[in-house]
Amino acid sequence: MTEPDVVLVERDGPVATVTLHRPAVRNALSPGLLARLREAMAALDADDAVGAVVLTGADPAFCAGLDLRELGSGGIDPSAGGDEGRPSWQPWARLSTPVVGAVNGAAVTGGLELALHCDVLVASERARFADTHARVGVLPGWGLTVLLPLAVGRGLARRMSLTGDHLSAAEALRAGLVTEVVPHAELLPTAHRLAATIAGNDRAAVRRLLRSYRDVEAAAVGEGFAVEAATAAEWAARHDPAEVERRRAGLLDRGRAQLAGSGEGGP
């Protein structure tokens, strides 16, 4: 039975919480889930009453990335161009509203890219991060090769991408990927307090300051996003969906083995 494509949206004053809700498949990104996520983010950004958005996933994961079963069958094109208002290197349309990512578990590959497009990240002690594009045999198209080195530095970014190994919550904090690690039960309250603080500031000033940060970042990376998008499109034109499916089982087994070795347990 296919896991339904559900995105939950809750409001608490000026703070909105968006939850990816496909827990049986660790919130893996299907075309339907992506469409609903984009719709939810656009609607909240257009609402002047919303001052900040918290993005999270239904336990036990934040997001396991693209649904490899659909990718392996040719159902997802990770290099597809952007829809209206969304460049191909962004998972959702440009937002003026700050997004706080509350990473409750695994943020892997496409899930890591979602996290990188948040403005601030806080993490549960159960969070972990990995770029497994090379293990699967696909290339990133949502700006990972630009945003990951900005977040953790050149060397660690390349190590993560070339090995596919996981980064623990504590390691992510030391690297600067997340700003805070809290006990799992405190994650959403912490993220909501942070979002409420942001929403309580001058709304126009917050949005303009955030735009300035993004403009400076874009100027610094130059053609980086365009280079990644072109590389991903060229690779996708010749990648074999059957090979992705073959690699899927090995990827899952390797992830379980790594988690068992770290003492975290779970699939």
Score class of each variant (00 low, 15 high):
Q90S: 10
W92E: 06
R94K: 10
R94F: 08
P98K: 09
V100E: 10
G101S: 04
A102H: 00
V103D: 04
G105S: 05
A106R: 12
A106I: 06
A107R: 08
A107Q: 00
V108W: 06
T109H: 01
G110A: 12
E113Q: 13
E113K: 01
E113G: 06
C118K: 02
L121T: 11
V122Q: 04
R126I: 07
A127Y: 07
A127C: 09
R128W: 14
D131S: 15
T132F: 00
T132M: 06
H133V: 14
H133C: 13
A134P: 00
R135D: 14
V136Q: 03
V136E: 02
G137E: 09
V138S: 01
L139E: 10
P140W: 00
G141P: 04
G141T: 06
W142S: 05
G143N: 02
G143R: 01
G143W: 05
L144W: 00
T145P: 02
P149M: 02
L150V: 13
G153A: 08
R154Q: 12
G155N: 08
G155A: 14
G155M: 06
L156Q: 13
R159Q: 13
T163Y: 02
D165A: 15
L167Y: 01
L167I: 08
S168Q: 04
S168V: 11
A169L: 10
A170V: 14
L173V: 12
A175E: 09
G176T: 03
G176Q: 01
L177A: 08
T179V: 15
V181S: 12
V182S: 10
A185V: 15
E186A: 14
E186H: 14
R193Q: 11
R193I: 07
L194N: 10
T197G: 13
I198L: 09
A199M: 04
G200E: 05
N201A: 15
R203V: 12
R203K: 12
A204W: 01
A205M: 09
V206W: 09
V206P: 12
